[in-house]
């Protein structure tokens, strides 16, 4: 049986207690939320910790709170299941619910949190392996080795940002709050990520992600298209988070598209072609082409990279067609279908 290394565990009761304990030794302390990413990583000795601080008991990190402004404040410890079951979110943020419902499997969503999903370690099939396996390739850049096996010769790690919620939250313009003993800051979700497989978060190790603020929605629609092999459990090999807003006359006033799982951070697609326009198949196609040119899928996850690149085009095209009410060209993914319909 795969087991954890010896470690200590504590469950702080307040945010202050948490940030204080974290500040004392950020290098060898890890925050434990649902544990669905951290525990496998510790078992495989990717990540190391002498101490785990379980954040499940901290009230500041909980709850789905609609605000008077029309915004919604999501506690980082909110489970993914709670999000898919929230009537408010289902009504106002169906794109988010769709993205979250597509994450892993129902039992994993009962455990996994939205904060953990945003902080999820980047993934790579040369890395998400046992210690023994990694030893047999002499490790790689992301840990002890000196070569990136996906792109030998490259000075950086290309491990994949595999969070399903990140592209969607970035597309709708959500913000995250980060707390530490030094204070609090709020940044855009897209700024939380850095396109580097190792340093993939702009969050400092002593900071806690406390809440996520969803902007008020009016005249905008969002959706999430996820590509993966199986219809459950699997991580995305491509995620398209898209938001389109239009005026009364149907002209597009805002459009944001983020790609997940094709780089070490969600990638922002140039949608300027759509702005101020009435949507057409040609315009959508143009954006899809830009997305394809932007994506650099590498051979470190399921499926061939050429096909995944092609799918960037198909899925961006598909997601935008869905949002713009244009006829579908490809079959939409059926992820999370039931979780949303109930």
């Amino acid at each position: 049986m795969m087991r954890l290394p010896s470690l200590q565990w504590a469950a702080p009761r307040t945010l202050t207690e948490l940030t204080t304990r974290l500040a004392a030794d950020p290098a060898s302390t890890k925050l434990l939320a649902g544990g669905t990413d951290l525990i496998p990583n510790l078992k495989r000795r990717h990540q190391h910790a002498r101490q785990l601080l379980w954040i499940g008991k901290i009230s500041e990190l909980q709850g789905i709170q609609p605000e008077a402004s029309g915004e919604v404040s999501l506690g980082a410890s909110t489970t993914l299941t709670a999000i898919t079951r929230s009537d408010h979110l289902r009504r106002h943020y169906p794109g988010l619910v769709r993205a979250v419902a597509s994450i892993s499997s129902p039992v994993l969503r009962n455990m996994g949190t939205i904060g953990g999903n945003l902080c999820l370690d980047t993934r790579c099939t040369y890395y998400n392996q046992s210690e023994e396996w990694r030893r047999s390739i002499d490790y790689c850049l992301k840990e002890a080795g000196d070569t990136c096996w996906v792109a030998p010769g490259s000075p950086r790690c290309w491990a994949i940002s595999a969070s399903d919620s990140a592209p969607l939250l970035a597309a709708i313009g959500a913000k995250v709050s980060l707390h530490s003993v030094a204070g609090e800051r709020e940044i855009d979700v897209e700024k939380l990520f850095v396109d580097d497989g190792i340093q993939y978060l702009a969050k400092r190790p002593d900071e806690v992600l406390t809440r996520i603020r969803l902007p008020a929605v009016s005249h905008s629609r969002s959706t999430y298209w996820k590509l993966r092999r199986r219809h459950s459990i699997d991580f995305p090999v491509l995620g398209v988070g898209a938001m389109v807003a239009s005026d009364g006359g149907g002209r597009i006033t805002a459009a944001r598209v983020f790609l997940g799982a094709v780089a070490s951070a969600p990638l922002s697609v140039d949608t300027s072609a759509l702005l101020g326009q009435l949507p057409t198949e040609e315009l959508v196609h143009t954006v899809a082409e830009r997305a394809r040119d932007l994506a650099t899928p590498l051979d470190n996850t399921d499926f061939t990279l050429q096909w995944r690149r092609r799918m960037v085009h198909s899925y961006v095209d598909g997601a935008l067609r869905e949002l713009c009410g244009l006829p579908a060209k490809v079959v939409a993914p059926r992820e999370g279908r039931f979780a949303i319909e109930v």
Partner: peptide, 20 residues
Amino acid sequence: SRALVHKFPSMLEYKSPTFV
């Protein structure tokens, strides 16, 4: 490198169909 390894000896990456 002389490595020659199983690409994905895991339940996650060796794809066994799920209920759905």
